[in-house]
Design a binder for these strands. Structure first.
Length: 203
DNA sequence: CGTACGATCTGCT
DNA sequence: GCAGATCGTACGA
């Protein structure tokens, strides 16, 4: 079942980041459907989060989508090379975002493997936000897409990620954020559980 | 207009 | 463990 608009209109971005584990992120570009189970996320909490691009109510052409209605994509270029994909959640214009940091390819695996140019095994987990977008073909020009549409969306396939399978810790690469760098807004599925959880899904 | 740098990844040591 | 890749964005002059 595709996640509806209401799912993204949630003011508790930490809770949503945790809940997205086990959901399936899909893309459909040029008629090619790819999808993978979300295995790692990070929450970026509104204008008070020193690690967020929206910190201090900074509104620019790039960040504007975060201030809009929840349920859209926010994609930006990092280090001049990597396209990083975020889910915008939102109530009353508070710019929450969730960075998708890892997926396990499930749908269109062969296409994902050929497009990434690597001889990944079918069971390779794409851990790292730059790898996720490369696997699914997401680029910065896909920022602002409606996640209730047919190009990028997320589905709940009934995978339940139990609390014992989740590791929570501080976010990666945000040392510049001072005290906020210590916030435990990163969630990931234990390596050993990723496979079992995806086993019920078929390609 | 000039410039510094980043929510990273890879390959080499 | 560490440096290099590589460029849009943000911000100050």
């Amino acid at each position: 079942m595709k996640l509806s608009r209401a799912y993204y209109l949630n003011g508790d971005v930490i809770e949503v980041a945790r809940d997205l584990l086990g959901k399936i992120l899909f893309t459909n570009f040029n008629g090619v459907i790819k999808g993978g189970m979300i295995t790692e996320t990070e929450a970026y909490e509104g204008v008070t989060d020193g690690a967020s691009h929206a910190f201090g109510n900074r509104r620019t052409d790039r960040t504007e989508v975060m201030f809009g209605e929840g349920g859209r994509s926010y994609v930006y270029l990092c280090y001049g090379i990597h396209h990083l994909f975020n889910v915008v959640t939102n109530v009353e214009g508070i710019p929450h975002a969730i960075l998708i940091r890892g997926i396990l390819p499930i749908y269109g695996k062969e296409k994902i493997h050929s497009d990434t140019g690597k001889n990944h095994s079918d069971y390779r987990n794409f851990n790292g936000p730059g790898k996720v977008t490369k696997a699914l073909g997401i680029r910065t020009n896909h920022s602002g897409y409606d996640l209730t549409g047919g190009r990028i969306w997320i589905e709940d396939k009934g995978i339940i990620v139990d609390p014992a399978s989740v590791i929570r810790g501080p976010r990666i690469g945000v040392d510049y954020a001072g005290e906020d760098a210590k916030l435990e807004y990163r969630f990931r599925v234990r390596e050993g559980r990723i496979h079992q959880l995806a086993a019920s899904q078929r390609q």
